[in-house]
């Protein structure tokens, strides 16, 4: 298992990208395209931030990658397969290698913090182990060390619903990393948090991504945060990519194009 994981990782590195989207389109209602033929390549490391106004398809794009939303057409090439074609067991196996962090954290509130982190391993465990809480010792060890690394080592046995928003998102990040992913998707990870905590969370994501060499795709409202933490900024407007480049190249005129006018600046 581990050997194949590692070889897959290096395969990504040699190919130069972890994920490639080809002509990805999504229509929730026939004829109304939320995503219009998106083609993007994502490198094997670093943070790519997708910015753009609400309702522009950012979330849909990120949710199409791990098929929480099914794209209408197009290809999602990840670890040598087209995720858009996968079903059932093979889709589950592919999802195990993609961690996801959510805006509303999406923890199981009545479970303890440590168990929420262990949930990141559910894709690797038979269901009876989940029912009986028989997690392998190796997984438990890793869950504790991940909790330490996100600064929640003392909270392992707290119930998740007793944590603050920032703490919950840290658990969410630990759960995603617990999957030992080759890619992390973060869908507005800071939008429910105050400005200071938002910075802390982005800092944590950046640090963990760099330390573990995992590429991250993050949807983010806050342009300043995107510029500060991303290696690459992708600007979307009305279902299309209108800017794609390093944060330094992102200029006022681009923002006007992405957000459509001066109004948002005030």
């Amino acid at each position: 298992m581990d050997a194949s994981v590692r070889s897959a990782k290096s395969a990504n590195d040699s190919a130069g990208h972890a994920l490639e989207l080809r002509n990805l389109s999504k229509e929730y209602r026939a004829g109304i395209q939320v995503l219009k033929n998106i083609s993007l390549k994502f490198a094997g490391r670093g943070i790519a931030a997708i910015i753009g106004p609400s309702g522009t398809g950012k979330s849909t794009l990120i949710r199409c990658i791990n098929r929480l939303t099914d794209p209408t057409s197009g290809e999602i090439l990840f670890m040598g397969t087209d995720l858009a074609q996968l079903k059932g067991r093979r889709l589950r196996e592919a999802r195990r290698k993609i961690g996801m962090v959510f805006q509303e954290y999406n923890l199981v509130e009545r479970l303890s913090v440590i168990e929420n982190v262990l949930c990141g391993r559910l894709g690797y465990l038979p269901a009876w182990r989940a029912w009986l809480r028989r997690f392998p010792a190796k997984d438990i060890e890793r869950a504790f060390s991940l909790l330490d690394s996100v600064g929640l080592g003392d909270f392992a046995n707290e119930r998740a619903d007793r944590l603050s928003g920032g703490q919950r998102q840290r658990v969410g990040i630990a759960r995603a990393l617990m999957q030992d992913p080759n890619l992390v998707l973060a869908d507005e990870p800071t939008s429910s948090l105050d400005p200071k905590t938002s910075v802390e969370i982005m800092e944590l994501i950046a640090r963990q991504a760099a330390a573990q060499g995992i590429p991250v795709i993050v949807n983010i409202h806050n342009v300043e945060l995107a510029k500060r933490y991303a290696d690459r900024v992708i600007g979307m407007s009305k279902g299309e990519v209108v800017f794609d480049g390093p944060p330094k190249a992102l200029e006022h005129s681009h923002l006007l194009q992405i957000y459509g006018g001066e109004g948002w600046l005030e």
Binding site: L68, G99, M100, V108, L122, R175
Partner: peptide, 10 residues
């Protein structure tokens, strides 16, 4: 939470 576990491949 259901979505999160689905995304983890459970």
């Amino acid at each position: 939470p259901i979505e999160a576990l689905t995304a983890a491949g459970a």
